[in-house]
Amino acid sequence: MDQDTRIDLKNFTLEELTEFLAGMGKERFRAGQVMRWMYHRLVDDFDAMSDLSKVLRAELHQRARISRLTPEATEDSRDGTRKYLFRLEDGETIESVRIPMDDNRATLCISTQVGCAMGCVFCHTGSFGLVRNLTPGEIVNQVCAALADGPVNNIVLMGMGEPLHNLDNVVKALQILYMPQGLDYSPRKVTLSTAGLVPQMQELGKRVRVNLAVSLNATTDEVRNRLMPVNQRYPLQQLMAACRQYPLHAKKRITFEYILIRDVNDSDQDARRLVKLLHGIKAKVNIIPFNEHSASEFRAPTEERISRFQGYLLDHGMVAIRRASKGQDISAACGQLKGKLTVSPPAQESERNSARPDRSQGKGKHL
């Protein structure tokens, strides 16, 4: 099938769409009209935009299109977690996860790349390598698709890929998410997680407002080098300095994600080093016990170690939360559903959806 070469309006901010329509000789207010159809009403057909003239709709058909994502496969957990697999226009696939929260609220974890280049040893997505960056439209369309299943209250950029490795497209996607004519999310409701790309962290803080989460997972460079190769470029001293310089709004904290792994980073000494490492940073620590799986050498910490680790942080005045795992009866960690479907023929989709649980850790971020 020939690829549609018309301009995808989902990649435009309001300013860019205004400029595009001005180039067609159209009034500035038309951009807001089109935006509201795309994002407030989730319309992807120009013919449905009834407050546009037939002439304008015909011209838009000739020059532009509105992309969308439809799940190719989903998996539903007993706890209400839903995993989506989306196939992109070039045939590549990405994942998103809808996570039920308290009070009938939902958080959506979205991807920013096809694959990932960071190579974290506990992350299943890293086994695919980096294929390409997602466009702003592909990032935002994950949210649009999930909205078909009900409201999404919070968005976390913690799925496949390193968001700051795709900084320009991620910033533009955030701008679309925040625009009143777009999806109209408050920056307070959106969190971006990074493995620690220090220069991009500094640039992010200058360009857009977003809650920051840092995948930390170790208290020494030796251990973090082993778990996360990015640490060899930006070791802990540089990473902590960047966190101290990151612009935080009132009452906000940087979230530090810490996957607790038996006999690797779960000792009393690690807890003491973590308190010292985060001194002077408005921080919250999410403790994520490692989920064992056959492909990994790592093991889950004992309940006693988890309690001692968390207790030490709490006793020293830190905000430390044990992250509850959700979706464990489905392929909920990053890359699992993609991995299953990549090796399974389409005709076996029903068999895949009822497959036995896969408890690979994935990134350990959103679940």
Score class of each variant (00 low, 15 high):
Arg244Trp: 02
Arg132His: 09
Arg209Leu: 00
Leu167Thr: 15
Gln328Val: 12
Ser53Lys: 10
Ala218His: 08
Lys10Thr: 11
Pro180Met: 12
Gln181Phe: 07
Glu95Pro: 02
Lys251Pro: 02
Thr255Met: 07
Phe86Trp: 00
Gly23Ser: 05
Asp8Glu: 11
Arg207Asn: 07
Ser193His: 00
Gly280Asp: 11
Asn166Tyr: 06
Ser354Thr: 07
Arg63Cys: 07
Val285Tyr: 12
Leu85Val: 06
Ala242Arg: 04
Met24Cys: 05
Ala31Gly: 03
Ile99Asp: 04
Asn104Phe: 13
Arg28Ala: 13
Leu367Met: 05
Val275Leu: 04
Glu162Cys: 03
Glu292Lys: 03
Leu134Ile: 14
Gly119Gln: 14
Ala333Glu: 08
Thr112His: 04
Gly25Val: 07
Phe298Pro: 05
Ser350Asp: 11
Gly25Arg: 11
Leu183Pro: 07
Val97Thr: 00
His316Gly: 10
Gly161Ser: 14
Gly129His: 15
Arg65Cys: 08
Lys284Gln: 14
Phe128Cys: 10
Thr255Lys: 09
Gly137Asp: 12
Thr70Asp: 12
Gly80Phe: 00
Thr302Pro: 09
Val170Gly: 06
Asp47Lys: 14
Arg105Glu: 09
Val97Ala: 00
Asp168Met: 02
Ser215Leu: 15
Arg98Lys: 03
Gly339Ser: 02
Ser307Asn: 09
Thr18Trp: 07
Leu212Tyr: 07
Pro235Asn: 10
Arg68Val: 04
Lys284Ala: 10
Tyr312Leu: 13
Glu203Gly: 01
Pro71Met: 02
His165Cys: 05
Phe256Val: 00
Ala218Thr: 06
Ile94His: 00
Lys251Arg: 15
Ala347Ser: 13
Val55Glu: 15
Ile330Asn: 00
Asp184Arg: 13
Phe86Met: 01
Ala295Ile: 01
Leu177His: 12
Val214Gln: 05
Pro151Ser: 14
Leu239His: 09
Lys363Phe: 05
Glu16Gln: 15
Pro163Gln: 05
Thr302Tyr: 05
Arg41Tyr: 12
Arg63Val: 14
Asn133His: 13
Leu212Asn: 05
Lys338Tyr: 06
Gly129Phe: 14
Ile330His: 00
